[in-house]
Amino acid sequence: MTNDPSVHHNVPSSLDVGPLHDEQTETADGTAVDGNIHLGYWDSAMDNRSLNQATDRLTDLVAGRLAAAPGRRLLDVGCGTGRPALRIARATGAHVSGISVSNEDIDLARTRADAAALADRVDFRYADACALPFEAASFDGAWAIESMMHISDRTAALTEIARTLRPGSPLVITDVLLRSPVTGDAAESVRQTCRAFQSPSFPEPAELRTALDRAGLEVVDFNDIGEHVRRTYQAFADAFADVVPSADDPHYEFFNSTRSLPRFGALPQVGYVFLVARRL
């Protein structure tokens, strides 16, 4: 937990983040990230991948831990505009169901699926992670790329995800991680970033482990890959430098500053979790 309780915000459910994703969808599609609204992965300081290539690289790392194959059913919790789901379905032959609390995300994801001739293997629908519209044991695997940060009751969401997984199936989670308590200017940066991304708080290691355990999910791997993704914060600031949000946008002040996101990303307390769990 942070030492400053005001870093945390009371968000009743993941549905509250829908309008934010609608706004991000309007700006992210067609920029250097080409619809990928998540962090990228670089192997080393010498890795010269573009931001777009690095975000796809993170998706591929997730896919590699899903044991995906033709005939298997996978769940994408927080599918965004559908790019990761389409990439994984195309590469593995699996069927993917994606959910989001953004109607604009869903519309664009469906359009992308049609354009990619993958609508028969990928479907998208509006749904809350805490109340999934799927029967028990429906999926052979699931992933959540930067979804947990938006959910206030992570135990409830993980319990729902576990309910939809068949025994032994993997869940892969990647997300911004708060490694240790923050105070002073660092706490203010975290608070501003939480507010901008409508996050109740960024997940912390002990909290995630406890929530996974309570949900009946066994941790297989729990790694902090923060140094491999840290370049993204400046890259995103550069990618969106020419995008001017409307002045009445509640996130205007944060996103209109090219310094806010890189300042947050440079904090040593900010990491990035890549974890694999298994339904017991």
Rank of each mutant, 00 (worst) to 15 (best):
V176M: 12
L86I: 13
R166V: 14
A85Y: 10
A45K: 14
I145D: 12
A237H: 13
T55W: 02
T174S: 14
A89K: 11
D76H: 09
F134Y: 15
A116C: 11
A136Q: 12
T159K: 13
P205T: 05
R166L: 04
Y233I: 00
A91H: 07
R49I: 06
S100M: 10
E104F: 05
Q234F: 02
L212C: 08
D34G: 05
Q198P: 00
N3V: 10
D43R: 15
A162N: 01
D242A: 14
S147Y: 05
Q192C: 05
S14I: 08
P262H: 10
G18R: 02
P167R: 14
T155V: 12
A63G: 15
S260G: 02
T92Q: 00
I161Q: 12
D76Q: 09
T81C: 09
Q234I: 03
E207M: 02
R49S: 10
N223H: 12
A136W: 04
F124D: 08
D224R: 01
A277I: 06
H251L: 08
D47Y: 03
A131W: 03
S100H: 08
A63I: 02
S100I: 05
S199D: 01
A89N: 05
V122C: 13
D22V: 05
P203F: 04
A239W: 03
T81H: 03
E218V: 14
S260V: 01
E188A: 14
R72Q: 04
L86R: 05
I99D: 04
M46T: 04
L61T: 09
S152V: 02
H21V: 08
R209H: 10
E23D: 07
V101A: 07
G216F: 02
A266I: 11
D56N: 04
A94N: 11
G226L: 06
L171F: 02
L280Y: 03
S102W: 10
L171H: 03
A142K: 04
G271Y: 06
S13I: 06
R87H: 03
D175W: 08
R209K: 14
A68D: 08
S6L: 11
M1R: 11
A157Y: 07
A157W: 00
D60H: 10
G64K: 08
D224Q: 05
T55D: 01
S246D: 05
R195D: 09
N256Q: 09
A85R: 05
F264L: 13
H38T: 01
S50Q: 06
R231N: 07
D140N: 09
S189V: 08
V220I: 15
S6Q: 15
P133T: 03
L280P: 13
S100E: 09
R125E: 01
R209M: 14
G226V: 05
A113Q: 02
D185G: 01
R73H: 15
N48I: 03
D4C: 09
E207F: 00
P19V: 09
G82L: 07
A67Y: 12
A211F: 09
D242V: 03
P12C: 14
L171M: 01
I173K: 07
A157M: 12
V101F: 06
L178V: 09
L177W: 02
E204D: 12
H150S: 10
D22E: 13
Y272A: 00
E135G: 03
Q269N: 06
D123N: 13
V182E: 08
H9V: 05
A129M: 14
